[in-house]
Amino acid sequence: MIINILQIILRFIVLVAIQVFILNNIQLGGVINPYLYILFLLTLPVQTPRLLLLLIGFALGISIDMFQNSTGIHAFACVLIAFFRPAWLKLVAPRDGFEPDESPGIKKFGFRWFLVYASVLVLAHHIIIFNLEIFRFSDFWSTQLRALYSSIFTIVLIIISQYLMHRPQK
């Protein structure tokens, strides 16, 4: 249990570091800003208490905000994702439900399930962030398109990192 918590804290630090030191510094085609750090919220254990989830979401978002001078934007999006995650998990739960202490991942639930589960949350997160950053309705569709492209890139990064961290068993 203790090891699990330590592992989660370590993952938090590593993902925030990757986000602010590497991903925030690269620019792809001038439009794509991947936000890989959201992977942390996606892979928290299924049984995480809902209240704790909200607080973790806030802590994650505000840490990114502090490095990016975007006060509140990432915190807002993360808390929203944290709020809807339990309901979304219940909706897409496998037929025989989750075991306690399980985390959503490709290894346990398969590629297709994880892709659906992650895509919806990542897309929602990116759309909120990109619109809050711009904060106006001119260029509405180009903003949505940027959010979509960035989400696709983030999802690809998430899938790759899933395969890197734990290879699926045959």
């Binding site: 909200l54 978002g61 975007s70 509140g72 808390v79």
Partner: peptide, 16 residues
Amino acid sequence: LFVAIQSFCVYLIVQN
């Protein structure tokens, strides 16, 4: 709690 945190975030965004 969700509404409280989100209000705080909105306050931060506006203030910033």
